[in-house]
């Protein structure tokens, strides 16, 4: 089951879904808006959230930036971090988790801090994405620092099969390059520099002619 989950996060073959047995603990107090006077918030986290609030002066638009800030602080959207963000935003923590769990890039469990997303969508899988994911899993699957997961189309089907290593897009990745890439990920080195999307010229021949 865990294996299936890795292929596409929060998607399981079976009939049980995450949270299937989540009951309320009746000993707990209700999760109302945390009181600013009694909720301690790390300085950087507060600063990041307050900056977002300034940039999006209306409504709850600062939610997503605030959740990114929580994730940067704790490595995941921990309940503690969510409560702190809720205190700064003056909203309930539930309002924040509702949003956090909607999006694929927020982690609701502590996972490796290095995120490696391997696209397994149509264009990539037409040219071997599933094998790529399997090969990377072989290399990095057990590494606690790495959050390796299959992902939907990352908008880089021109470099299929591809992966996003902490936001850096690389591809097309050949199976033979997997050990090297895995090593770079483990070491925190620049992943496959020659294969980074950012360096790739436009495919349209008219561009080169200009």
């Amino acid at each position: 089951m865990a294996d299936v989950q890795r292929h596409v996060a929060r998607f399981t073959h079976g009939s049980r879904i995450p949270g299937w047995d989540r009951a309320a603990d009746l000993e707990k107090e209700p999760a109302v808006v945390p009181d600013a006077a009694t909720t301690e918030v790390p300085g950087e986290l507060r600063a990041a959230i307050e900056d977002a609030v300034r940039r999006f002066p209306v409504g709850d638009s600062a939610f997503i930036p605030a959740l990114y800030a929580v994730q940067a602080q704790y490595g995941w959207c921990s309940p503690e971090g969510i409560e702190q963000a809720a205190a700064v935003l003056g909203r309930t923590p539930a309002a924040l988790t509702a949003v956090a769990t909607f999006y694929d890039m927020f982690e609701m469990e502590p996972l490796g801090r290095k995120s490696v997303y391997v696209c397994t969508n149509i264009s990539c899988s037409l040219v071997g994405a599933d094998q790529l994911l399997a090969a990377l899993e072989e290399e990095l699957g057990e590494d606690p620092d790495v959050n390796l997961r299959g992902f939907e189309c990352l908008g880089a089907c021109d470099i299929a099969p591809m992966a996003s290593v902490d936001g850096v897009y690389v591809g097309p990745i050949e199976l033979g390059e997997v050990p090297e890439l895995a090593n770079q990920i483990r070491q925190g080195d620049d992943p496959l520099p020659a294969k980074q999307l950012i360096r790739r010229p436009c495919a349209d021949p008219k561009v080169a002619e200009q």
Partner: peptide
């Protein structure tokens, strides 16, 4: 704002924050 939906699609479910009643 205590009762919310978590997750997405067919995995969506009604819940509260972190097991609070």
């Amino acid at each position: 704002d205590q009762l919310v939906l978590e997750e997405r699609g067919a995995d969506t479910f009604v819940t509260t924050f972190d097991g609070h009643p």
